[in-house]
Design a protein around this nucleic acid. Sequence first.
RNA 1: GGGCGAUUAGCUCAGUUGGUUAGAGCGCCACGCUUACAACGUGGAUGUCGGGGGUUCGAGUCCCUCAUCGCCCA
Length: 1088
Amino acid sequence: MSDSPPTELPSHYDHQAAQEKWYTFWEQQGFFHADANSKKPPFSIVIPPPNVTGALHLGHALNNTLQDILCRMKRMQGFNVLWMPGTDHAGIATQAVVERRLLEEEGKSRHDLGREGLVDRIWEWKAQYEKRILGQLKQLGCSCDWERTRFTLDDQCARAVRETFFKLFADNKIYRGKRLVNWDTYLQTAVSDDEVFHEVTKGHFWHFNYPVVDPKPGEPTHVTIATTRPETMLGDTAVAVHPDPAAAFDKLSTELREKIIAASAKEKGELDEEATLLLERRAKMLPQLEILRGMALRGVKLELPLTGRTIPLICDEWAKPELGSGCVKITPAHDENDYQVWQRNLEIGAINILNRDGTLNDSVPEKYRGLTMKKARAAVVEDMETAGLLVEIEDREIDLAHSDRSKTPIEPYLADQWFVKMDELAQSAMDAVTDERVKIFPERYTKTYLDWLSEKRDWPVGRQLWWGHRIPVWHNLVEPKSELEACNIPEEMFVEARDQLRLYLVAAGFSEEDFRIEFDDVYMRLCIKNPKVDDAINALNKYFQGGLDAVKPGRVHDASSPILTFVPGFKAASDAAKQITRFGKFVREEEVLDTWFSSALWPHSTLGWPNETPELKTFYPTSVLITSRDIITLWVARMVLAGLYNMDEVPFPEVFIHPKILDGYGETMSKSKGNGVDPLDVIDKFGADSLRFGLAYLTTETQDVRLPVEFECPHCQALIPQTKKNRTLPRVECDKCGKPFGTQWAQSHGSAEDQALPRGAAVSERFELGRNFCNKLWNASRFALMNLADYKTSANGNLVADDLLLEDRWLLSRLATVTGEVTAALESYHFADAARALYGFAWDEFCSFYVEMSKARFAVAEQRATAQRVMAYALDTLLRLLHPMVPFLTEEVWHLLGEVAPERGLTDPQTAGESVCVAQWPTVKETCIDKAIEAQFAQFQTVMGAVRNIRQEKNIPPRTPIKFSVRCDEEAIALLQPMEPYFASMAGATATDWGPKVTPPERVASKPLEGMEVHVDISEFFDVAAERTRLEKERDQLAKFVQSIEGNLGNENFVKNAPAAVVEQQREKLIEVQGQFQAVESALGKLG
RNA sequence: GGGCGAUUAGCUCAGUUGGUUAGAGCGCCACGCUUACAACGUGGAUGUCGGGGGUUCGAGUCCCUCAUCGCCCA
């Protein structure tokens, strides 16, 4: 706590000092630690775990600021608050980053390191970034319970993952299926749809002829197909023609006609032309297509060139009569649409022609094997040309999918995948939202959630990666030479092997609680919950390799898998083992689980599940989830279904979706675009409080947040707007001083020289709002502290109503109202409303009026004590209300205030606590709310405004005293006369007269107000022309207003239909405005 | 192609169930360093509320439509 007396406080708030001092203080006091056994009502939030791929950006700052605001308010409201922190392992993203670096820095691939080696490297990376991320959160002021920090890949989460996978497996909700996946041939893994981006590139459209086998006379001898990927023809299993081309043409014509009717004249021309072309095409193509359709129905085959295979001509609606030749080649293993055709025509089969690395496999003729797609393409085209089957080559733009991670083109690839059946799980998560056990705010996002879940698409959970939770399944590996052979394994063999395996494991001391055995027509699979079973399987494998001797008691061969040597039922076990191993060795599944699998469990896994911990009991379900809209489906939906599945209870009753932060061009911020902003840069420049307040101020319901970004020149501090061009330059030259500086781009893309330049931080001027506000608060506090040196409460324990002046009662009324507004806004996630209410109150009401007025009062001995009491109380309340958004500044001031005014409160003064962080949240003092007082005060403000306005209009220097009088009624006199000192101190104006009969002086500037008229004596500054101009302008405005109201009231329908109150209001307004108009007219008249 | 959202002052955004002269911050203009604060004070200017149509006594707000932009899904 500061030793310096308040008068020596700097005139600018030093955010850096406050941040260091108070964060340490809070941690040391243990304010952020939640007690699972507390009697207080619980409030808990799990952090959306930032992934350890990189440092936090502004989006994270927003996300965590909002959580912290809620946590801090709830803590002050007396809740037992747990904010569970942690990070996410982010499977593919992290592995890709580490692999890329490995290649760049050491020229090594993951295969050079091997699985363990690579995973070790990733753990190192994780350690580094986790530290950085948690540090960033602390700098931001986040009040997380750090003792409970988790990681999605730590032991506790691993237990939860294994338990869940096992449960799903045992529940028959896990299966293996063949699906087309987005195959990244560089990383050699499947990537999900959301890890793919599309790019239009220049390509070609090749037209090939496939010969018809034994055509009848009159039938075509060739079928023409076209493709953008000629090499895939080696995997064709059919060619399709539309089953009813005539109907298809008709349907198109009808649609086109409807369009033409609705179209504008301009579009009509084009559409008409289109319709004509369609008709011509129909006439030309239809007979041929109908012949082909007939051939397809007859079962005609085609020769698939280059392969020696024949493939069927089939009927399927995927063939579009209006496009190309009307026929389409079908490659089910390498095209999503063709895959669908296969699902409708299973007899055609599917042939995978790719190896995992993107080269062609043994399913294609020998000459193409081992070629890359690119080489194979050239070869196929050449061979087709030689065979005389190449018809033509068109140029064409192609929408090509690329992997987000490796930036290489994606190959659709038919692969065995692990799936989670979603039908029931998805339904449960939908029900939870439709019956409002989970509410999503803003409500419109409910649709996103429900739409996605309603598709009930099975969840592919396996990833061909090394970084992640390895799937806890062992395969009993038979290497079938072909799928045919695999299919011929008699089921009895599986049954027998399964029974034997079960016997073995039971003999080894395990139960069905620990493992589960399933088989399909190729594999026997063992899913293991208890990791000790892994050891038993390892022992079995040893046996398989070395015979029974290898695992005999007393001959311990391997300390890591000694299970067979110790099991009591060794004999039974070994007999069983003999049976099982006839089948083959057990191999642990190589794949790991999708990152979202562990994230889905986050709300309960972090609390200790599957153990029944006190934390789980106290804090589950959590209170609310706060996240960004792009992971509603990937994460929120899955948490809900996983929570219901494992806990039988939703993970949170409410979800708040906050906006995304975009740059000045409306683009999402990202490292790869170079437009990201590091919150630490903003914190350095503006302070954590400013960042937090600025973010809260921007968090509105409807829109994403646009944040123009600037570089700050490290030499002269000039701000240079970031553009699409300069954001990816490693060095930028300052507009102002001309000196070069390095950008964030330099770190990843710059030369050593660029990197050596001083770094220009990327920041945004938007945060000046927060900084200015903080500084205003700081200075208002400083003023209060300076004037509270002789503050005492003991002489005057309770303030009574008589002690209070109008301004006190006004301030207290406003304070109570604002307390209610802020509380309600935060509790309903209206962060911007809360920030704006506080900003307006603190600046325009507390500072601009109450503090200003108190200056005059502090100077008057008999008014001083009351003013101090109210001032201390108001500041105290304001600090509490602001603390969630502006934690450091409020804590700093709280302590300073505590030194001069330790006991605060209007009645029953209480000693302020050790920290505002755990001070009680203000409650609304209903008795203070007085709308009449607020209206009266507004009247005072209006008169003050009029006087100030006239001074400025007349160009009267601020320090020149002026005189004014006010024509008003008796009631207003009673109100305004006591305020005379304030007109003197705040407007340099002395009142000369009040009342209904006030006559303005000869040379006057007048301003009509509601029911009043303000006259400022300007004899010393008289300028007829200027005054006339001013009044004429005012008259014109009023005339317009009168006209508009008269227009309304003259409208019979308005008077008849509008509510009486509205009509009456208009009538009153008219009289009022007409009065003002006349006042101006007469003032103008006087000017002559 | 389907869904959601946005379009309001030069910029970034508010605008409650329709109610009558549309607000804030920054920026701009004028005047001011008055011992809390120039990161400030006082005053001021600034909008055919994306275009078009409709409902209504009355539309920034409700409906239709078009345009542009963004996101999600295919």
